[in-house]
Amino acid sequence: MAGSAGGSAGGCPGRGAGETRRVYRAVSPPPTRRSRALSSPKPNRPAARKPAPRADDKPAERVVAENRKARHEYEIVDTLECGIALVGSEVKSLRVGRMSLDEAYGRVDGGEVWLIGCDIPEYEKANQLNHQPKRPRKLLLHRREIGRFAGQAFEKGLTLVPLKMYFKNGRVKVLVGIGRGRKVHDKRQKLKADTARRDIEAALRGRNRGGR
């Protein structure tokens, strides 16, 4: 009885004197590939760089109309690209290629440049929201451009003439030129030069076809 009492007092109750205490420890399972991937830090990868635009890349341009008469009537001494204020029906009419610059010209009024005589026919599907075909339209120029470009034409007695209207990256643009009126003799010389140039181009095309 004394031995059992001593064993109970010195050790765990219910164990004999010769028994040892067993300690169990939780053993974690070996790491898997997924756990290793989640625990390991990801390397800092440099962000992908967008390719730089090439120097020879040009914005998309679609010509709506050209003022061929202006090249014959005027000697163009300078040109400038500018925007133009339009309404929705006018833009839709331009997209189907309906407009004329034959009788158009630029005029400075109230510190702004206006395009006069440009004929943009009504858009058939616009109904009551249509525009006036030959209404004055404001050209979008900066103040310094108006002072340098339009002021130069006014001081020298030259004329602002629209050379062409086109879409550039989805926006309507106008190429405006400063024109000096040609004399009758100059017009004849210009006509002869244009005729000679066309004859040379036609002869070259015929030669290229014959050589094939």
Rank of each mutant, 00 (worst) to 15 (best):
D57E: 15
E81R: 13
E61Y: 02
L80W: 04
P30W: 11
P29R: 10
G110K: 08
H72F: 13
L101C: 06
N169Q: 14
M99P: 10
K190Q: 14
G177Y: 11
A104Q: 01
G10Y: 11
D186Q: 14
K50G: 05
E75D: 15
R98K: 13
L101T: 02
G157D: 01
A153C: 00
F154T: 13
D194C: 10
R182P: 11
G170H: 10
P29A: 02
S39I: 05
N67E: 00
Q132T: 12
G151P: 09
E124S: 10
G16D: 12
R197W: 02
N130S: 14
N127D: 12
V64C: 03
D56T: 13
K125T: 15
R95L: 06
V64Q: 06
E145I: 08
E66Q: 08
R45C: 07
I200D: 08
I200N: 06
G157V: 05
R198L: 12
I200T: 11
H142L: 11
E66H: 05
D186V: 01
E122W: 08
A153K: 01
A48C: 10
E155S: 02
P51S: 11
K168R: 14
M1T: 13
N169I: 09
N130K: 15
A47G: 04
A150H: 02
L129H: 12
G170F: 01
S93W: 07
N130R: 15
S100M: 05
K138R: 15
G3R: 14
L86R: 00
H72C: 01
P31I: 07
I146T: 09
A150V: 05
A5Y: 14
K42N: 09
G11S: 10
N44A: 15
A193E: 03
K156E: 04
A85P: 07
N67T: 03
S8R: 13
L191F: 00
A26N: 02
C12N: 13
R182A: 11
V23D: 05
L204I: 15
P136W: 02
K156L: 01
K190E: 15
S89R: 04
Y24M: 04
Q128S: 05
L38V: 07
A5L: 15
R62I: 12
F149H: 03
D56C: 05
N127I: 03
V64E: 00
L191I: 02
K42E: 12
K164L: 09
A26Y: 06
K156G: 00
R25N: 13
R54Q: 14
K164I: 04
R197D: 10
Y24C: 03
P59C: 09
R54T: 13
S100F: 05
E90H: 03
D78C: 09
N169W: 06
E66D: 03
P162V: 07
Y166S: 00
I120W: 07
P46C: 02
K134R: 15
V161K: 09
E112D: 14
A126S: 11
V64W: 03
K168H: 03
V23K: 04
A9H: 12
S100Y: 03
E201G: 05
A17R: 13
A203F: 06
K173T: 10
L163A: 00
P121F: 04
S40V: 08
V27G: 00
R198P: 10
K183T: 14
L158I: 06
P133T: 07
K192V: 12
S39M: 06
R107H: 13
G210V: 12
P133C: 04
R34G: 06
R15E: 12
I120S: 08
R36P: 04
K69W: 04
I146F: 02
N127E: 13
P59A: 08
